[in-house]
Structures are given as C-alpha cells and as structure tokens.
Nucleic acid binder design. Structure first.
Lengths: 215, 215
DNA sequence: ACGTAAACTTACCCGCCAGTAACGTTACGG
DNA sequence: CCGTAACGTTACTGGCGGGTAAGTTTACGT
C-alpha cells in the first residue's frame, strides 16, 4: 500500500498503523496476553516506537478504545439522526450497529469483551465508553416518549430495555459469524420483529403476573 | 467453617476449596492476570499444592469451568423439567438462570466473560460449555413446536431466538448489579414480557419488511 | 549541500510468575 | 507406638515481556 519504497513514515500515520495493529492483537489475545512486541512487529516498527508515541501499553489500549468508540458512536448517530419516527429510528440504529460489527469485528471485541483483567484507569475508561454506547441506544429507546406528550416511562424501565437490546445485539454478533451469508438487514429485521412489540409493554410499566396456563 | 482446629484437610475437600478460590480470583482478575499464588493463598494453602492436585494453571481453570457448567445446567434442567406448557417452561428457565447468577456472580463471569486470551485447549472446552448452555436454552425455545404438530421452525430461526435470549439475559446480569433490590422474579417477568410475543413471529418465519411509517 | 530534528534501531535491564525440587509434619492403620 | 503415606512447606529457576538508554539513519527546510 501507498509508497513501498519509503520506509520512513510521518508520526500521525504511524500512530494509526500502530493502533490498527493493536486492535487486531488485543482482540485476538486479550489485553494481558497481548505483547507490545507483537503489536509493534505487525505495525512494521520496533517496540520503542510504540512507547515513544503511545507512552505505555495502557496508553496504547486507551487510544484503541477511544478511536473505536468514536467511530461506533458516529455511525450510530449518523444512522439514527435522519430517520423519521421511533420505529424506523431504532431500526436504523440497530442496522448501523450490525453493519459496524460486520466491518470491524476486532473493534467490537476490544470495546466490549474485556470485562475483567484491567487496571483501574482502563476499567474507568472502558466503563465510560460502554456508557456512551448505552446512552446512544437509550436515546433510540426513549425516542418513543418524545413523540408522546407524557414522559411516561421511568428511567429504570428504559434502562432495562436498553440493556436487553445491547445484550441481544452483542450476542447476535456471534450468530452472525455462524451465518456469514446473512446480511445485517435481515438480522436487524428479525430482532426488530422479536422485540418491538414487547418493548412497549415494558416501557409502559405493564408488568403482568404470569398468565395461568391457556387463555 | 467446619473444624478450625484441624489444619490438615483431605484431598477432595481441599480441591473444592481451591476451585472455590480460583473462581473468585479468575472472575476478579481474568485468566492471565490471575496468579496461582493468590489463588493458593485464598484457599489457605501453598502454591505447590495447587499444582499437585490440579496439574497446571490451565487444568485449574478447566476444573472451574467444568464444575460451574455442571451446576448451571443442572439448575436449568431442574427448573424447566417440571413446568407445564411452553410459556411457563421458558419462564422457569429464565428464572433459574437469573437466580443462579444472583447467587454465583463469579461463576458466571468465569463461564461467560473470557472470550479472548486463552490457550487452544481452554478455548475448545469453553466453546463446549457455552454450547451446552445454548443447547439447554434452545430446548426451552423449541418446546413450543413440540406441542404443535408441525416441526415448523427451522433450526436457524430457533438458533436466532436462542442467541438473542442468551445475550439479553447475559447483559441483564449487569443491570442486576445496578439494581440489587430487584428480585430475579421481576427481571424474569419483564424479559418475558418483552420477548414472548415477538418470539413467535420469528420462530414462525414471519419476517415482514419494514412497515411504511404509520398504519 | 548540509545541519538538524524526526524517525527508527539494537541491546539491554528487571520484576513477575508458572512451574519444580527437596525437604518437614501430621494422622491413621496395624 | 511407630511407620508410612498423605498433607504440606520453603526456596529456588527460567523465561517472558514491559519498559528504557544510547546510538543510527533519513528526509526536509533553508
């Protein structure tokens, strides 16, 4: 790619190459098992360069986290913004999500699948970025009420729905890899189909007790 | 607990104590960041004992995995078995799951949140245990059709629903920790409320195209 | 052209931790 | 009451990997 003859590359470009490499390695090995050496090699550079540009392994991970969160949030906003009506809005958001994951599997792994094993500083940042994604989805969920007059649904209920959606979508990410032929559109469609009706019930606080057998 | 005066403890008991300690530490630190030293100390024993009884760090992790998978699957089967009808059956399964997680947070973390960062042998075993859980849930989902005459739903659709449910439930696990006062029963209720209706649509292959705005 | 800063390297240090060797100690069976 | 096997320990090694000091090369500005 680009000019193969020139080895020397300006800093901003190298930084991105290093982050690219880091995301792949972090996704494959996990934070602790990933070695800076391997990342450097994949980026076509030696280890001290990584430390010069990104300070530390932790700093490198944070850089990955920030860049990819930015990308995902941007994609979500871009998709949901122009949609008319709550239903199409949510659909657009989900579609944007599945499309993002389909195109950047590694990013999603780094962003979302690193629950344990990290230093306080990283854990804090990770919590923040997850919160950002949840907030974005939460916005989609709450879009209903904005249309209605009543601010009917309490935050807890909206939160519940959001967690359910994010978890379901995350898990379907695995399903996608088992069905590579399925386009994000169909997955989105099925998920909408599955949750759209029930969402309303929960958001309106309609928690009935278990029905007694057959109606 | 038990007899505090006796220090010497028979092997089967120690093994369980070590596994108990390992689950807590693995959950807190993640596989790589966890040190065998810390696990041994928490189990009230010195490091070589761990290697004597469980062979290696990998063997120790596998032992944790197997024991807790066993427990979860047992809980699911015990709950879903005696329930009458598909709806109550699924409800019972979900309730059993949330109850299990509420009582064994660490177990669930070890079982489910260790995607990356493990050796091939562990990864294989982890895949097997996840498969076991998914199969169990899949049974709950498919329970519908068993009642009906037609084996109507193709495996893909049932799989899709299963992944959605497992993912949603997993994510709600986090929601639980933010709302410690919510009993598993209410969480189960809300989730049922949210997905039960839509499940039918997807299982029956009713994937409509996006509705054009307002009906 | 040539000096200088930015890009890059080699070669090292050092702490941490999985895994082990060799050696004490308690209980329980005969 | 004593032997022996099960229970347990202290004290090491070996290597991997994060982090760095010191030096080398290339491009770009003037």
């Amino acid at each position: 790619m680009t000019d193969t003859r020139r080895r020397r590359v300006p800093r901003p470009v190298r930084e991105q190459q290093i982050i690219d490499a880091a995301i792949r390695v972090f996704a494959k090995r996990g934070y602790h098992a990933a070695s800076v050496e391997e990342i450097a090699e994949l980026a076509g550079v030696s280890k001290p360069m990584v430390y010069l540009y990104l300070d530390s392994k932790e700093g490198l991970f944070l850089a990955c986290l920030r860049r990819e969160t930015e990308r995902l949030v941007t994609a979500l906003r871009a998709a949901a913004g122009p949609a008319h009506g709550p239903e199409l809005r949510l659909r657009a958001g989900l579609l944007a999500f599945f499309t993002f994951v389909a195109e950047h599997r590694d990013s999603w792994v780094v962003l979302h699948r690193q629950a344990a094993e990290l230093s306080p500083a990283i854990a804090a940042e990770l919590a923040r970025t997850r919160r950002a994604v949840v907030t974005e989805v939460s916005g989609l969920v709450r879009a209903d009420d904005a249309a209605d007059a009543a601010p009917a649904c309490p935050d807890d209920e909206a939160d519940f729905v959001t967690y359910t959606l994010v978890g379901a979508a995350d898990s379907l990410t695995d399903w996608m890899t088992l069905h590579p032929e399925e386009p994000p559109e169909r997955i989105t469609l099925r998920l909408m189909n599955m949750v759209w009706v029930g969402m309303r019930n929960v958001l309106d606080g309609e928690v009935w007790t278990t029905p007694g057998r057959e109606p």
